[in-house]
């Protein structure tokens, strides 16, 4: 069988895609407590790696240029910067030149605190981060899986889905969006004081018994309410705050039965 010419392969690869990627090993940053990721356009995926595999700490960046010009990311450092200050690793993409997006795929120790700021647009997915997350995003959804300790999430246009498995019961959770639903899944023994705000097109679904002095409109009725739903309530006797707020969309509080 005739072997392919390597130059031909390279030309084919360059002509197919208008993206390229680069990778960086971050295991040199062993003495940090937190990671802060700031980006403009592009998806951010973060996976927390448990202590038994803590030598896995790396970042993959995938660059996409919508002007149909492919660009090879020979130097990741031209697009993404890294610095450590006060035991916090800052990973920041460059300010976009025209429309460009950089997807970031980060694998990091699960016991580090994670903060993300996505200035323009993209979706955020984070899994197995056990020491709390704080996220600020403009356009796009936030999907959090197997989160520990606490989360503060703020979005403008996009839904928030957050699944917690090991909460710090003294820490508040706050999930706020403008357009989109808010879904929180908590361990079934969680004790929380709830603040629920859904100003329009909302309803509230809850696996938990909600103890409230006031009637909660459209509770466990999948019917969009014209009236604002603004309530305080308690689950399992009450505890730290669970603040769920959306201008436009439903709210769901589920039990994590795993």
């Amino acid at each position: 069988m005739k072997t392919l010419n390597p130059i031909l392969v390279l030309i084919i690869l360059l002509s197919i895609g208008n993206f390229s990627f680069g990778q960086k090993d971050l295991s040199i940053y062993s003495d940090i407590d937190a990671v802060f990721v700031k980006s403009y356009w592009g998806n951010i995926n973060v996976v927390g790696i448990d202590a038994s595999n803590q030598d896995i700490f790396d970042l993959e960046a995938v660059y996409t240029d919508t002007l149909k010009k492919s660009k090879n990311l020979r130097q990741l450092s031209d697009y993404v910067s890294f610095k450590v200050e006060n035991r916090k690793l800052y990973i920041e993409t460059r300010e976009p030149k025209g429309f460009e997006s950089i997807d970031l795929n980060l694998k990091m120790p699960a016991d580090l605190f994670l903060e993300i700021k996505l200035e323009k647009g993209g979706n955020i997915f984070a899994d197995n981060m056990k020491n709390g997350v704080e996220i600020n995003i403009l356009n796009g959804s936030v999907n959090l899986e197997r989160i520990g300790k606490y989360a503060l999430v703020n979005a403008a246009n996009g839904e928030i889905v957050a699944n917690f498995d090991t909460l710090d019961e003294g820490m508040p959770i706050s999930l706020v969006t403008m357009n989109g639903g808010v879904n929180a899944t908590l361990p079934d023994n969680s004790k929380r004081d709830l603040r629920l705000i859904s100003r329009k097109n909302g309803f509230v679904l809850s696996d938990f018994d909600l103890l409230s002095d006031e009637k909660i409109i459209n509770l466990n009725v999948r019917q969009y309410s014209k009236k604002p739903i603004i309530n305080t309530a308690r689950i399992n006797g009450g505890g730290a705050l669970l603040f769920l707020s959306t201008e436009n969309g439903p709210i769901s509080i589920k039990k994590n039965r795993s």
Binding site: G132, E134, Y150, L152, M171, P172, S174, A240, L241, F243
Partner: peptide, 10 residues
């Protein structure tokens, strides 16, 4: 920290 501030305000 931010969560402590938020809880305090609430």
């Amino acid at each position: 920290s931010n969560p402590e501030k938020l809880g305090f305000i609430y």
